[in-house]
Simulated scan of single mutants.
Amino acid sequence: MPTPPPTGPLVTRATLAADLRSLGVRPGETLLAHSSLRSLGWVNGGSVAVVEGLLDALGPDGTLVVPTQSGGLSDPALWTAPPVPEAWWETIRDTMPGYDPLVTPTRGVGVIPETVRTWPGALRSAHPQTSFAAIGPRAAKIVEDHAPDCRLGERSPLARLEAMGARVLLLGAGYDSCTGFHLAEYRIPSPRVEVGRPVRTPEGSRWEVVTEVSISSERFDELGADFERDRPVVRGLVGAADTRLFPVADAVAYAERWLQTHRSREEWVTDDAPASRRS
């Protein structure tokens, strides 16, 4: 049986940059991008072309930021997809390589963030599970001093992006991936949880447990739909991808009010087990 031809549209670095400009991406701005390569169509050059197109649209004075999470660096007791035998847990904790921003790969966020992570000149924040990577003149200010006990809160790159007027680009991605909503969870009464992960020290890797705000993307799609109904959100196509563009600050402020009204403690389903490990 012959192989069917690829489905389109044919997308290139130049068409991506043009579509992003038509959507409203401005040269010189700071953009937090959540992305799906598959949604764009047939991309000539794959994730490299996407990153090049994003950087072209932003220009030399703009800064591109992506989540480079490494959720696999987590407590094996929480793994469910697949689980591992309880008899292995202690050995896994004792031998798991600690987080290294230059080496540790991303997990569960797609190929575009992994491409940004390894891009020449990219900088990455220090949190062992919820890091961000950035390219551009504001990169250092965004990723520096990401506190080890503050995944997505006031001492994370999200708060800096909010303060500097950055915008969110959902490039074929849904509101369930919008990390900015998590910053709102730090500003409302939220459960706290113990979080374990390996960290790198001069003496080698060691297991560390910190107390953190419990985060959850449960109902983020519903939150996003209400946000889009009530607040200005730019929508359009980039390639074949349904794309949205809006300020980080707007998303955080709306989510803070929405979560306090709509989410109860009883329905809180935490994301403390990494997405790639959950059933």
Rank of each mutant, 00 (worst) to 15 (best):
P189H: 02
A17R: 02
L183K: 03
A173W: 03
V25N: 08
G204Q: 00
L123M: 13
T201F: 01
A255Y: 14
E144C: 11
W207G: 05
T130N: 14
Q69F: 15
E222C: 03
D226A: 10
P128S: 03
L223H: 04
T115F: 10
Q260K: 07
T115K: 15
Y175I: 03
R151K: 08
S35E: 10
S22C: 11
A126H: 08
T3Q: 14
I112A: 07
T80E: 15
V48Y: 09
G46E: 11
R167T: 03
L40S: 11
P60W: 13
P83Q: 10
F132R: 02
Y175D: 09
A225Q: 12
M1V: 13
T270F: 00
G59Q: 07
E52P: 04
A225R: 14
I135P: 03
S264A: 14
E90F: 00
A249W: 12
T12M: 02
G236V: 08
F181Y: 14
A166I: 03
R265L: 15
G121W: 05
F181E: 08
G98E: 02
R229G: 01
F181W: 11
A33L: 14
R138L: 06
E228V: 04
A122L: 05
A184E: 00
P113T: 06
I215Q: 04
K141S: 14
V84L: 07
V168G: 06
S156K: 08
H146N: 07
T30L: 12
A87Y: 05
D176C: 12
G165M: 12
V111F: 01
I142W: 02
S205Y: 01
G108V: 00
F227Q: 01
H34R: 04
R229E: 13
T243W: 12
D230T: 09
T261Q: 15
P137S: 05
R229D: 12
R117F: 03
L54Y: 11
G98K: 02
T243P: 11
A77Y: 04
T63K: 08
F181D: 08
G62K: 09
H146S: 07
S156G: 05
T211S: 13
R167Y: 02
P148L: 15
E144S: 15
S156V: 05
M1N: 10
S205K: 01
D94G: 06
G204S: 01
V252P: 10
V210D: 04
P120G: 02
V66H: 13
A241T: 04
L40Q: 09
